[in-house]
Amino acid sequence: MSTTRERALDAAVELVGTQGIRALTHARVDAHAGLPRGSTSNHFRTRAALVSGVSEWIAAQETRDLGAALGRPFDDLDGFIDMFTAGIELLTGPHAVRTRARYALFLESASDPALLAPLRVQREGIAAWTRGLLVALGAPHPDAALHAFMAFGDGIVLHRLSVDPQVPVRASVAVAVHGCLSA
């Protein structure tokens, strides 16, 4: 059974992911979660604390879910492509609302790095892990490959969230990976 705090955070993520950051108020979170008025503010006294809590919650949930999708061992380049395809499809399919909320928080909190800290730490971890995989696969310029691959990933995620949710992913991931591994 979820705690009051978890119910509030789940509701907050859904509000931000479906209605935008302006929908994030204590009262709306309480109503959306079916909680008594004031429940959310018992855990997050200010809006900044609520935004920070949502950021931490998204990072923790994505780390858990992506860890399961991306933590699978792979034997070859096709396995690597399949693994990243699965991650992108997870972020833009079953967890699309949460992913939209993450992007909304990135844009909202650009002027306050402390609010974004959990999401930035998570992204840095994914980047370091991805760089290691690109090195293992023989990327001749791993830093440039990492930046290109991460930009590609953001691009296809945004494209699927905003333009074409059904665009095939695997062929695009394959092109990006092959480009990152070429000279």
Rank of each mutant, 00 (worst) to 15 (best):
M1A: 14
M1H: 14
S2Y: 13
T3L: 11
R5L: 10
R5W: 09
E6T: 14
E6W: 08
R7K: 15
R7C: 10
D10E: 11
A11Y: 04
A11G: 02
A12W: 06
A12K: 01
V13P: 03
V13N: 03
I21G: 01
A23T: 06
A23E: 06
T25R: 11
H26S: 14
V29L: 02
D30I: 08
D30W: 12
A31P: 03
H32A: 15
A33M: 10
R37Y: 15
S39E: 03
S39L: 04
T40K: 04
T40V: 11
R47Y: 12
V51H: 00
S52V: 01
V54T: 11
E56K: 09
A60T: 12
A60W: 08
D65H: 14
D65Q: 15
G67C: 03
A68R: 15
A69N: 07
A69R: 13
D75F: 12
D76F: 09
L77E: 15
F80A: 10
F80C: 01
I81K: 01
D82H: 09
D82C: 05
F84C: 02
I88W: 02
I88M: 01
T92K: 09
V97T: 15
V97S: 11
R100A: 07
A101V: 08
A101W: 05
Y103S: 06
F106D: 07
L107E: 07
L107A: 09
E108A: 10
A110T: 03
D112F: 00
D112K: 05
D112R: 09
P113G: 04
L115A: 02
R120A: 12
R120Q: 12
Q122S: 15
R123E: 14
R123V: 08
E124V: 10
E124I: 11
W129P: 00
W129D: 15
G132S: 12
V135L: 11
A136R: 13
L137C: 02
G138V: 09
G138F: 12
A139G: 02
A139V: 07
P142N: 03
A144P: 00
A144Y: 10
A145V: 08
L146H: 11
L146R: 08
G153V: 07
G153R: 14
D154W: 03
G155F: 05
L161R: 08
V163E: 01
D164Y: 06
V167W: 06
V169G: 00
V169M: 09
V173L: 05
V173A: 02
A174W: 07
V175P: 00
V175R: 11
H178G: 00
G179C: 10
G179H: 11
A183F: 13
